[in-house]
Amino acid sequence: MKLSIALASAVFADTQCTSKGGTCTDYRYTTCYAGYERYICNGDSNRQCCLYCSPTCEAKEELDSAGDSRCTAAGGECKHNTNYCNGTYQSGLCGGGASRQCCTGKEDPDPPVDVGGDYFNRYYGYKLGGKISGEDFSSLSSAKNRCSTLGSSCSGVVNDYAGHYYLSTSYTFSSASGQTTYEKGEKWSARFVPRVEWEARSPTGVTNFQLPARHGLIGHHTAGSHCSDKASCISNMKGTQNYHMDSLGWSDIGYQFLIGEDGRIYEGRGQWRQGAHCSNWNSNTIGFSVMGNFSNRLPNQNALDAVDELIAWLERKNYVNKNCYEFAGHRDKNATVCPGDPLYAHWGSGKYPFWHRKC
């Protein structure tokens, strides 16, 4: 009897799809030319309605596919962007309308990087400036290896989807539809976890940042979940990025760097891109945040030590003016309790010579 009721319920629910001429199926395993519609099929979120594609629709799909060469050259597949994509959709690489996009699958992760080694963060739809003449490659791995060999004269690799990769010298980003940049960075500490290591999403927008930061450094707490091991801190990083991008509508995670109570320093936007951490101060300060709510207690010693290491590195690299800059708490610049009384008092205890410094 229970089985009969369940089957009747499924048939009833699916009629919303079948009345449109569609078919309910697990969208992860079937490409649907006309696209999928959600919430009109019985079952979990993977069971979606594949809309009917008429002979005219099929003929248009065949015609549109003639313009897919840039996507296929990138190892991707063109399809309606409501279809499942185990990677990221990119526009401007496929024939047809705006909803027909290139699904580029997840690349194999780079091997773990030792301290002093190079990592490469991926950015869809952007290129770096300063193309190095004569340095063109047919494979990403060859281009990355060459970029590492060139040291500080190479800032990263750009795939222009014309069948080759080229090298750049500048960390200045600019929009470039259909291109992908692999920004090079150095793993400067065993504590440091770059974007590629915690599998950050590609941003939807980039604003370049002038270094050294013209004013200084602002410290925050996320006021969210605490984390004391790498797995939970990575989960926090992904959750914070999703919240900032999907709920707040920002282009990326807001902070340039985040600190966990596992003692690690996680790369957010990084030093080359402007953050979204403190209204009216984003263009001239670097923002970092300790993950957790510290309104009633200090972060543990692991996190406090990681903050000190981050600040020392920013000074050493002159990303903040090592001769004079202001280190402030978020509450000094905006009406907020951030970073919490205990943490704010710790930073103002006299240990930090640039705390509230006027330059």
Rank of each mutant, 00 (worst) to 15 (best):
M291V: 02
G134I: 04
A74P: 05
R70T: 08
D64W: 02
Q271D: 07
R214K: 13
E62Q: 13
C24F: 11
C147W: 05
D160M: 01
N42M: 06
C53A: 15
V113A: 14
H220Y: 14
V11H: 11
S189I: 05
K184E: 09
G224K: 15
F192G: 08
T149D: 11
G350H: 03
C278H: 07
A200W: 11
W250D: 14
L7Q: 15
N86S: 13
F120V: 02
C147K: 08
T72S: 14
G92K: 10
Y52P: 00
G67H: 02
A6S: 12
W347D: 04
N302G: 07
L7S: 11
G129R: 08
P339R: 11
S295Q: 10
S232W: 03
H330I: 00
Y39A: 14
T285K: 08
C41Q: 10
A6D: 11
C53V: 08
N334G: 01
G151W: 00
S91P: 00
E261S: 13
Q179L: 10
N300H: 02
S349L: 01
G35L: 07
C147N: 07
R191D: 15
A34N: 14
R146P: 02
A98V: 09
S279N: 14
E326T: 13
S152K: 14
G287I: 05
N236R: 12
H80Y: 11
D262C: 03
V11S: 11
T222A: 08
C24Y: 13
T23W: 01
A303R: 08
V158G: 00
G116C: 03
M291K: 04
Y52L: 11
E326V: 07
S349W: 01
C278P: 01
G287T: 05
I234F: 12
C57R: 01
S283W: 00
E135N: 01
W355C: 00
S153I: 11
K106W: 04
V307H: 02
Y171H: 11
Y39K: 15
C102V: 03
T222G: 05
S202Y: 10
E315A: 01
R38H: 05
C94E: 04
A328G: 04
Y243T: 05
E186F: 09
C94Q: 06
G96D: 13
D68T: 07
W313E: 15
N42P: 02
I286N: 07
H277A: 15
S139D: 09
G130A: 07
F288R: 03
D118I: 00
D114C: 00
K127S: 13
N323W: 10
W355H: 10
S170H: 08
N83D: 09
E77F: 05
V290F: 06
G254C: 12
C50N: 06
R146I: 01
E37L: 10
A98I: 09
A303P: 02
F354Q: 05
D26G: 04
